[in-house]
Design a protein around this nucleic acid. Structure first.
Lengths: 357, 357
DNA sequence: CTGAAAGCGCTTACAG
DNA sequence: CTGAAAGCGCTTACAG
């Protein structure tokens, strides 16, 4: 942070002009091997590093990406997304500038402040996969959406492949021998809820089974919602459910996410059903604090948060020209990139034990 | 992000020199009321905003603070800290530049990249309150530690007031009438573990009670640790504990954090103890995903994460001169600022029901 | 292969 | 009160 050496000092030290120093360092002009060596030695001796501000001033490139996150505080995965984004940016000599906005506050003036030539492009990260309208202040050609999609704007999106992720969860249950598999979710028509329901139904139908979807009232997919949905699924009272309907009730539950799965655990406990034995459960998210803490541990599909962060930054870098699009030259710049998840096996899926049907 | 209007355009529009525009806008020089008005009108018409890069170039101030976070991905509270830091920075027209480093990787080259005149000062946030050595690349006069303390460097620290926070938790139990209150924690000599034990012991002794501290093996304070500690506390087997020792066993438990409290819930369930009735529990953190999901909800002491973020940024701004220290002129610049927590009441504390002693 | 010069958009002595 | 000029540290045509 102290005033450091400038290109002028290096030039003097090496006995050349600043133009030559710049050429030698950037590799842009032509410089003789001898000269280049002397410049490099001078740089080394002086511990010189170019001033990014001055460079930005000249080139109009800041090597800074904006990262607008909605409700980062209440999003447990935000950390991983940021780590990924940040690592990918660093790999290309960029840094991230973060602005957190309240849910839905797309007109936050700080977004404008960010845009004000402070950043080369911005990644706009939604708190959960859903359809949004791009904030007015953001230029579609300089923005990528993360965990969000705007059908009305030509802007690239990076989202989880909800259908495939649901299919991965359901397959884990099918492969363990389960045939009666229910899906517990919430109300709402967002891509996450809808995509997972579709992935669940398709996979089950392909396996020749009948889907059973129970939606908890409300759109908040937390433990309480899981508790409500599971209570509805297993019928009015604990004892009745365990006895009368034992032969018909699902032997496995695919929960919308790990938090809802936690609610399923609670209902199971209330009714004396042992998870992994009397009832198998799979979630989505791999939310450590829940999935690893539950007893038995929750088998779940990890969402590719870190990769999502990386992918979004890569798209943003392509927009600024700092990174050229890979392989396919005609990759749709405004397309949707869907990322798959991975099954994390813990102890909540067991073989089918109650088989009376 | 498009090339916007410059001070030159404003000058032309207003019919004055760029010097006058600069003076009118910064309020530094003297400008007649009429001229100022014309400049302001021109600014308005053109939608002009000064280029921060050019300004930084001239003034050597970037209005950017670095935020180095350790393991932000695995720290559930990181989001709130960042929100606070970010909001405070924004209130003073600064933005945050975030770099996430792996646990203990203080020599990460990206820290240097950050320092390289990209930021005016940096907030270094540890993943948990502990004693560290300031990374070599950070200047103590331009750094503030968050959730960390370096006894060897003259650098300001912002940390939770562990003792007071523990006292708040214990008092909630005492006020509900509990007399036999155990503290469940882990091994380790960090400020969090030590401070909470001290706060617990002091408060209990003041109330004329005997402290009982159970330390789970290991230093990781998760649900499994809580399970181990609670198992140890309540004795070898479920039935024995419930029967034989009912009159001596603690009626309440103060857990090191919410995750350990979750382990206590699990043990209680295994032994048929109802939380809030047979056993009262209080945690620390107010980790939503756990505290609100548990049944009954966990009463806990919320750590002032957002305020910690704000306080740290305020100290950093004082270092850069962008903010002058409040009240006391001789506030120790390198002092430790301790922030208190707040009790969040849910349903895990009830009156004492078993009172045989 | 090398270097003098212009210029990015501001701020700040300094002169009028 | 107002403005011409220097300069922050680079990069990039352009000339030699």
């Amino acid at each position: 942070m102290a005033r450091s050496t400038s290109i002028r000092d290096v030039a003097a030290e090496a006995g050349v002009s600043i133009t030559t120093v710049s050429h030698a360092l950037s590799g842009k002009g032509t410089v003789s091997a001898r000269t280049r060596l002397r410049v490099e030695e001078a740089v080394e001796r002086l511990g010189y590093a170019p001033n990014p501000i001055a460079r930005a001033m000249r080139t109009d490139r800041r090597a800074v990406l904006g990262f607008v996150s909605e409700e980062i505080a209440s999003t447990p995965y935000a950390g991983k997304i940021i780590v990924g984004a940040q690592a990918e940016a660093a790999a290309h000599d960029h840094v991230l500038m973060i602005v957190d906005i309240a849910a839905g506050e797309f007109d936050d003036p700080r977004i404008d402040a960010l845009i004000q030539r402070q950043v080369d492009a911005v990644v706009f990260a939604s708190a959960s996969n859903r359809v949004i309208r791009l904030p007015r202040s953001l230029d579609p050609a300089r923005t990528v959406l993360l965990d969000a999609f705007d059908p009305a704007a030509p802007v690239p999106s990076v989202v989880p492949d909800e259908q495939d992720i649901a299919a991965t969860a359901v397959r884990a249950l099918l492969e363990a021998g389960h045939r009666r598999i229910a899906h517990l979710t919430v109300e709402g028509a967002g891509p996450a809820v809808t995509g997972r329901v579709e992935g669940y139904e398709r996979t089950l139908v392909q396996a020749g089974r009948t889907p059973v979807v129970v939606r908890a009232a409300g759109e908040v997919a937390d433990a309480a919602a899981g508790h409500r949905a599971a209570t509805e699924l297993f019928g009015p009272t604990p004892s009745q459910a365990a006895d009368a309907h034992a032969g018909e009730r699902p032997t496995a539950v695919f929960a919308f996410n790990d938090q809802m799965a936690m609610g399923v655990y609670q209902v199971a406990e209330e009714r004396g059903m042992r998870i992994g034995r009397d009832l198998s459960v799979v979630g989505i998210d791999d939310l450590q604090i829940v999935a690893a803490a539950l007893r038995p541990g929750l088998t779940t599909v990890a969402l590719p948060h870190e990769q999502m962060g990386r992918a979004a930054v890569r798209r943003a870098l392509e927009q600024t020209g700092a990174l050229t699009a890979p392989q396919a030259p005609q990759t749709p710049r405004a397309g949707v990139e869907r990322l798959r998840g991975e099954l994390v096996v813990r102890g909540s899926i067991g073989p089918v034990t109650v088989t009376r049907s």
